Amino acid sequence: MCRRFRRAGSPVNAVIAAVTVCALCSGLWLLRDGAGRNAPPQPSAAQAHTGVDDHSGGRAAAPALPPSPPDRVRIPAIGVNAPLTGLGLTRNGGLDVPPADRKNLAGWYEAGVTPGETGTAIIAGHVDNTEGPAVFYSLGALRKGSTIEVDRRDGGAAVFTVDAVEVYDAKDFPDAQVYGAATRPELRVITCGGGYSRTTGYRGNVVVYAHLTGRR
């Protein structure tokens, strides 16, 4: 599995390093088609942060929820409905990833805030494995204003609205922006992206930015 690590500088998630969540075996599934028909979708420039108003069409932030571990993530616009497993850190200080052979499994960073709490919660998952598309294969097709729901162990669900979807080359990954502290409940969803190299694998990451707008 290819992983590239960079130290994040946020007070809350200072121990997280940026992670590239890639397929095993150098993406053999993707390499089967030299024309690139199997490449996952990438976000357009229209879905990036505007620098003016990234609050998803005026959707106000909802009050923070008390801590509760998450059990499932659903993103209806791209057909995601996946269980969540806790993620820790690797020996190198990077965020670990879910087992690649469980392609519909995503993970959340257990040492950070839980989704819905004030701060920046982190969810990560594979874009593909050697068999084909995995849980976040279509993450790059997500659009501003889409909904992300996270089922919590307390029986409720945290509802987030997407503010932006960006793709970054590994060498330009904005650690502080992705992992930095937040004064409201926010969520980042991360997978591989940014094109594919036969020698090094995926070149970067797709990152979804969202904030809490409701509960149920």
Rank of each mutant, 00 (worst) to 15 (best):
G193D: 04
I122H: 10
V178E: 05
I123V: 10
G145Y: 07
T191V: 14
S197Y: 09
A164E: 05
A134V: 11
P185A: 05
R152F: 11
F136V: 15
R203A: 08
T130I: 14
R188G: 06
F136Y: 13
Y179R: 00
A182D: 05
H211F: 10
T118L: 07
E186R: 14
G125Q: 01
S197W: 10
D154W: 07
A182P: 00
G125E: 08
T147H: 04
V127L: 05
A121H: 04
V165N: 03
A176I: 12
A181E: 09
G132L: 10
D163P: 04
G116F: 00
I123M: 00
H211P: 10
T199A: 13
D128Y: 12
V165M: 08
V127S: 08
I122G: 09
T213M: 10
Q177D: 13
D128K: 08
A141R: 13
D169Q: 14
V162C: 09
S197K: 13
A141T: 06
L142P: 02
Y209V: 12
D151W: 03
K144R: 15
I122T: 12
R152L: 15
D175V: 14
N129W: 05
V208S: 05
Y196W: 15
A158H: 03
A182T: 00
Y137L: 07
H126Q: 10
C192D: 08
T161A: 15
G156E: 08
C192I: 01
A170T: 08
P174L: 12
Y202P: 03
V135N: 04
D169C: 04
T130E: 15
V189S: 04
Y209D: 07
T118K: 15
N205T: 02
G116Y: 00
V127T: 09
A124V: 15
D128F: 12
T161Q: 12
L187Q: 02
V189A: 03
Y179K: 06
T183M: 08
S197N: 14
A164R: 08
D154P: 03
G195V: 11
N129A: 09
N129V: 11
A124S: 15
A182M: 11
V207G: 08
G180N: 02
R188H: 02
P115M: 01
R203T: 08
G116W: 02
I123L: 14
